[in-house]
Each structure stands twice: as C-alpha cells, then as structure tokens.
Nucleic acid binder design. Structure first.
Lengths: 261, 261
DNA sequence: ACTTGAACCTCTCGCCGCGTGAGGTCATAG
DNA sequence: CTATGACCTCACGCGGCGAGAGGTTCAAGT
C-alpha cells in the first residue's frame, strides 16, 4: 500500500531530532503530529524512541506544504488518509474548497483595508474639528454591523461605489435641502396632503431608493435601516446638523404624509 | 473627564442582558470584556449584578468597531485608555499599524491563492499521467519554504513572472539541451578546460543567473538553492529525466570545469 | 408572603497549533 | 562510572470567546 515508490528495507531510519533538523520543523511539532495522527512515527525502539522512515519524511513534506497553503491539520489528515493515487478527486475537492475559503478571506481583508483607509482619511482630512466626530464614526461602524447582514453591507457599499463619491455628496446636499423644506412646512403647519409636501416626500423616497436594491432584498435593507433609526435616534441624529427632536418630529410628519398619500 | 458628552445623572442604567440585546453581543462576551478590562461595568448592585451606563454603551460600540477592523482586545484597550480627544495621534498610529498588518495579510493570501490555483491547474491539466508527480510537487513546496526565506521566494516568483511562462519553458528546454551536451562530454572524457566545455558551462551559468537577482541577495539565493540540491539530490533529481547518479556526476564535472576556468 | 421562572453570578473546560517548560529515562563518549 | 545530550511523557499557556455547571437574585403573578 504505502511506500510503493521508496520502500524502506534496510534504509536509514531517522530519530525525531534528525527528522526535525532535516525538515526544519521542531521536535514539539512532530510530537504534536504524532499525537493527533497527522504523522505517526512508523516504529518505536524498545525504549520508546520514535523512528521515522523515508516515507514518513515525504509525508511530512506533504503535511508542511498543505499547512503552508493554509489548511487545518484535520483537513490535512483527511486529505492524506486515502492515498491520492487512488482518489485524486478528493485532493482536487480539497484544494478547490481551500481556494474558495482563501477568496472569502481575501475579500474580507480588502473590505477591512477600505474601511481603515476611510477612517484614516477622515482623521487626516481637513475636516477634523472634533475628535468626537471620529469616535461617533467608530460607533456607527459597529451599529451597521449589528443591524445589517454582511450581504446587506456589501450591497450598500456596492451601490455607493457605483454611484460614485460625487453623486453621494450631491445626494447629501439634496437631502439637507429636503430636510429644510419639509421642516419649514411642518413648522408652518402645511397639511400633509398638500401637493408641495407630497412632491417633497416623493423626492425624499426617490433619494433613499437610490441607495437600496429593488425587490425583497432592498425592502429588508430599508427595514433594517428603519430599525436602526428607531433604536438609536439620538446617537444618529447627533451626526446631523438638526436637533434630535426636530428630526423625530420630521419623521412623524413624513409618516403622516405617506399614510395620507 | 469621561462622559463630557453624555453625563449619566439620573439616566437609565442597563443590566448586562439589556446591554447585550441592545448591542448584539453575548453576555459571555461582556463578562470577558469586564474580566480583561476592555469594558468594565461602571457599577455593581449590592448583590453584585453589573450596571452599565450610556457611556459604557458608547464605549462598547467603539470596542466592537475596532474589533471588526481586526484589532486585538489588548490593542483596543490601549487605544481607548487615553481619551482620543486628548491624543488623536495615538489613534492615527494604531489605525496606520492596523492598515500595514492588513496589507501584509492580503499579500500573503494572494500568494496562497496563486499557489493553490497553480496546483489546481496542474491537477486539471492534460498532463496528469501520474498522481505521484503531484505529490512530489507538494513536497517541493515545503522544501522551498525550508530553504528560502520569504523574501527570496518573493524574488524568485517575481523574476519568473517577469520572464514570463514562455521564457521559463524555453529555459527549461535549453537547460535539458545543456545537460545532454555536457553529459556527452563527461562520458567522452573531454577535459574540463576544453573551450567547448567552457562555453557550455558559461551558458549554464548565464541561464541560471537569469533566475537570480544580482549582488549579495542573488548569491544568497543561489547558495540556498545549492544547499537544497546537496541535501535532497535524490528527491529533486527524481523530477528530472536523468538518473540521480548521472546528475551527481555532471555536477562534479561542472565544479571541476569552473575551478579550471 | 410565597413561588416560580428568568436573569444574573462565578468558575471551569474546550477549541487550534503548537511553544515552553518540568521532571524523568536512554544512549554514547571519555 | 559519569557526564552530556537526546529522547520520553505530562501539563500549562496564548486569544476570544462558547458552552455548561451549580448557585443566587430579581420581578411578576398568586
């Protein structure tokens, strides 16, 4: 079975220290591999010292290679359990799975890099009147993590980058403008079914929709955003130039207008 | 000091379960944060139950955000120890360090992806006469890891990709040709200072130099390659179309020719 | 006032891949 | 016979919690 190529008859048998030096791993690592069955010493002396064969050395090389590719020792044991000569498909599946996992990790890291870069540019940017602003941004990050699933965050980020920074900035300006106009109407007591108000509400909803996907997914994202707003009205409106209670009143006005529409 | 923004006088104080639900972390996590001092409950009831304030909640958000960016809890504790309002440079340094670390990780993962992809293409390629070939490739990977430093591996990979796959294949063919010619001379007993032999040796060295950098770094890489060859002559020559002892003889012939040149 | 069930407390072990000892046995050279 | 290394088997430690055991306390209903 094992050892079709290099049979060990009469060949040298290594002690654990020799194997360690030859392969560049520590003795402790070999002990560990023996313990968990990734690489068992194929023999012991009468006094209990491990003796390794040339086949063991080759197997060790394979183990180290697969580990260098990022696999767990459990996966490696399974991969090397059935001789790959009999079962090349198993090895293929494992490598493919590993590749998928690596791609996922790479994506995650790229996202983190983008986020950290963004935070750094906020810190370095001219707009640094107030370190509290930065801390609040930090708080927002974990809020987003709490309320949106990773897929939803991906989707939001994707749409923002599709729109481009300029369009996002323009949307921010238009949003501020809508807030001001609607607040004015709310203060003036304009009825919610006034055509001017209805038009403003329509613009508001359109503006928001640009950031969400269509269909069920988009609705879920919007629902998550609403939940976040309801739970953290104060913290969130602290980042806006209007006081929290004014925004709360505005949201109520909006709700009534939508109900009337 | 702390709580300049949101003072807690008379405000609601959360139990650990309420804080957990509000922030989306588990109670166990909050216990852990309390234990290691990342987020201490700012008070306890007489019976020992933890009570959290609004400031604690904000701090928790910051902790979760920094963790989502990949920082360790130790780093986070340090980062939040000094109020960042007093020391914005510290936070900047931390984020910059984190960004560096993330870039390193991203590079590593990209390399792994390239390696796994290469292995998969070897498995899928038409040239799959022999699963042993594949296993030997695995063994080579860990050998390279043992003999070359990460920098040296980077350098080798860089030069190979600069040369391009075609040039590498061409070099392989020329190498085979040189081996055949030199073996013929060695067998024929041509003296090592024969001009034809010296020319072949010159070509051999040039061919090898194309894969190594110039200067001290390149010499170290070549030395590492020689050590690898010396330690693993048999395994390595098993991947070449000539028997190990013929290659060994050839290397000796080469050495003598270089000494004579 | 009593009971119940949920929420809270502390303490401990488990995961992964070993590093780093501690304390004892075996092999070999002088 | 002894000194020195190489080897052996435990066993704890690391990071960031999950999972559970076993006991107390809280809040609400009867």
């Amino acid at each position: 079975m094992a050892g079709v190529i290099g049979n060990d008859t009469g060949a040298h048998r290594w002690s654990i220290g020799e194997l360690a030096r030859a392969s560049g791993v520590t003795v402790r690592t070999l002990h560990h591999y023996d313990e968990i069955g990734v690489l068992r010493a194929s023999a012991r002396t009468t006094s209990g010292h491990r003796r390794y064969t040339a086949d063991d050395l080759r197997r060790l090389y394979r183990v180290r290679a697969l580990r260098a590719l990022g696999m767990s020792l459990d996966e490696i044991r399974e991969a090397l359990a059935s001789s790959p000569a009999e079962d090349p498909a198993a090895m293929r599946g494992l490598l493919a799975a590993q590749l998928r996992q690596l791609t996922v990790q790479a994506d995650r890291i790229q996202q983190l890099i983008a986020q950290v870069t963004g935070l750094l540019s906020q810190l370095d940017g001219a707009s640094m009147p107030d370190p509290d602003q930065f801390l609040t941004t930090l708080e927002m990050i974990s809020m987003l993590d709490t309320y949106f699933t990773p897929e939803q965050r991906d989707e939001l980020a994707r749409r923002r980058s599709e729109l481009g920074a300029d369009a996002v900035e323009e949307a921010r300006v238009r949003f501020a403008d809508l807030v001001e106009q609607l607040l004015a109407h709310a203060d003036a007591g304009t009825p919610v079914d006034d055509p001017r108000v209805r038009d403003l509400v329509r613009q508001w909803d359109e503006l928001g929709n640009a950031f969400h996907a269509e269909g069920v997914g988009g609705e879920q994202t919007k629902a998550a955003a609403r939940r976040m707003w309801q739970d953290h009205r104060d913290e969130l409106s602290a980042r806006l130039p209007w006081p929290a209670e004014r925004m709360a009143g505005l949201m109520a006005y909006l709700e009534r207008a939508r109900a009337a529409g």
